[in-house]
Amino acid sequence: MEPSWMNNHLSKRLLILLAGLMLSGCMVSREISDVRRDIEKEFPGAEFDKEFVISVGPGFFNTVGWLAERVDDYDARRIADYLNEIRRVKVGVYRTEQLPYEGDLELESLRRFNENGWELAVKVRDDDEMVWVLYREWYDEVRDMFILVLDDENLVIVRVEGYLNRLLEKIVEDETYATRLFD
């Protein structure tokens, strides 16, 4: 029989290893910061202050998915199944310091979007808020999506990579099944 300190030691190692695996994809995203810089460059006078930027990568989703699959719970396994379809999520939230630009902000015309196959799906310019949804297709499936929301208070930048059609199909399938079951 092994001494208890060894068990503790092993558990600590396991925990560190697990945390390392989970956090392997969690880091600050340079891309999100670059988008913010591009916006400031393209629209002189616009200025944003970072509140937080985070990028969660495949390491995180794979580990959480792997763990959730092993939990004896239907919902956890469902979530594991959804996580398998997500590759990466990047989020940036900035405080709007200055937004002097009165005209039309055409973020979709930024070179990074223009030259890399991004398509503008929806753009909404409300009285006090602007929203852009851009996406890229790959093999007839939405695999990449950028959502930008800008108002007097914040600039929020979100990028989601994954098999988004498949993810939504799974969610709808499960929800429809559950609705039918309880109807």
């Binding site: 039309d104 055409e106 398509e119 503008l120 799906a121 929806v122 753009k123 909404v124 310019r125 409300d126």
Partner: peptide, 8 residues
């Protein structure tokens, strides 16, 4: 620019 643009 339009206030709403959708290309779906």
């Amino acid at each position: 620019a339009p206030k709403i643009e959708a290309n779906i």
